[in-house]
Design a protein around this nucleic acid. Sequence first.
DNA 1: ATCCCTCGAGTTCA
DNA 2: CTCGAGGGAT
Length: 664
Amino acid sequence: MGSTKTDIESLRSEINHHNELYYQKSEPEISDVEFDALLKKLQKLEEENPELITPDSPTQRIGGKAEGFKPFKHVVPMMSLDNSYNLDELRKFDERCQKLADGRDFDYVAELKIDGLSLSLHYENGILVVGATRGDGETGDDITPNAKTIRSIPLKLKDEYRERMEIRGEAFIAKSVFREINQDLIAKGEKTFANPRNSASGTIRMLDSSVVASRRLDMFPYDVLSGNQKAFETHWENFKWLEKNGFNVNPNRRLCSGIEAVIDFCNEMETEKDGLDYDIDGVVAKVNQTDLQDEFGATTKSPRWAIAYKYPAIQAMTRLLDIKIQVGRTGALTPVAILEPVELAGTTVSRASLHNQDEIERLGIKLGDWVSIEKSGEIIPQVLKVIESKRDGSEKEYQFPTRCPVCDTPVVRPDGEVVTRCPNETCPAKIKGRIAYFSMRKAMDIEGLGSVLIQQLVEGGLVKDVADLYALDVKTVSDLERMAEKSAQNVVDQIAVSKERGLQRLLYGLDIRHVGEMYSKILANHFRSIDKLSEASVEELDEIYEIGKAVAESIHEYFRLERNQDLIRRLKRSGVKMEVDENSSVNLDERFAGKIFVLTGKMENYTRSAASKLIEERGGRVSSSVSKKTDYLVAGEKAGSKLTKAEKLGVEIIDEFGLETLFA
DNA sequence: ATCCCTCGAGTTCA
DNA sequence: CTCGAGGGAT
């Protein structure tokens, strides 16, 4: 026989061959047991000769233990899709696309929306190097070893690949496999998964990839990128290429020459979906031509060239046991339906928000009523309606409270507003809410200050506002129940650390009406210190591009209140930083921050939307018409009336290369 | 005056 | 995630 090296190589090609038979042709020639034996043999040989291990070896699908996951920043953000819940919304989507296409011909591709979790796979020179979850769309987890356990994901591309390619797809666990996994878990006395989707997303995050391998995840790919661009001229070609490279491409897809054909596909699949061995939650329609996709662009939330059509959500019936009132950070009284627990789409639902008094009246709901509920938008349960025919007279009318259930202050509901609020500024519920908000991750990020501790601090009278946090010492905290010295020390340290978070996070944490993540960033960047901001007039605030009258007045009002000025003075005295942290990312590019750009004409190297994005990333603004506020007009080929107008107004005019120099 | 986009706010569950 | 309101753009 030949050398170990050739043995290893022939084993690898044999395994790859069986893999392909199994996944692409669905005609395995050998049993799973035999397959595993081959794999084990290869593993043993490789262990003895580690120098011969290559990254694309089938054994690399089953890595060893990983130690937590590194974050992975997506090259191109993974956006979610706009949803539609009826066929007319699909037709509206079509109208928008027709308008954007402006007479040019295009097709749609209709495909299934798999109910799993999105993955992004990166190939360099044809070799799989990274597998990552979607995460928040910007950054996900690097789960490469786990992605490699998915047998239908090739470790190596074979057909005309480019240097850097990214494949996106939906990972899932087949319904049949899901049932086996749960039986297994029951046998071992472990907790079972509620549905295939949960089991897939739980599995992909497991650290031990040999367990992941046993769970037999699979993936249906749906997109191919080359670098940061679309890889092919049409979406339909993506599928052809994916098939040639051995991916498990979902066969249920259709090239449609108009929206009505997409609708036919939706209707056909609705009758067939229960017979499939995987869960779907709808159909996705995409514009087929990628040049049009690029041109249509995207809103911050989703691309304008694709839409998801979702099948009606599953409903269930249950009884309304009680209505509880929650008092939030803003004093809003929110009624919550306490339901008899019922299974719905894989989770047990026991509560649902009733939003406000009007909603209760609209539903005409009484205590003890049977109600139908549904899950709209994946998780959040909604009470749809009361089943009046099930009433037997024992139901009781519900009275919306006139006093705050927490502090007994009479509640108010201003004319024209739907929310009922507790007006008492010292209401413990509001204090707790504000402290929790202050310590949230996006605000001052105080680790260890959880709801239980906050409850104790507020009820013990130790903390009445956020400034009191900085006066806490270890002894006071460790005297509380269930607080050992060590964890008390920890919390006190964390509170001290938070003094350095900087102006942006502080502003966010102060809970000024209308000022959230975005506006606190803008304000911090503009004013640099809380004193400057505090002195700003309504007019000064209103002049800031993104800020309008209502927001300006709310900010001004906040700083006019003595109570707030006092709070800020006390925070300052404790050493809380009131200026922009020069090291933080609040600092925007000086050349772009707050500047308004107008693009006109055709550029050589950028599409309009790509250039806009680059400008906005640097803190600039892109407007569509020239005015005296415009800072730069970027004039490309064949610039027209905008150029004339800019010249007349004396706006600085730069060309594509001028813009490029600014980017550099 | 109207349309469309963003940001903020409130909420559920594993 | 969805809804409502603020704010630009047209």
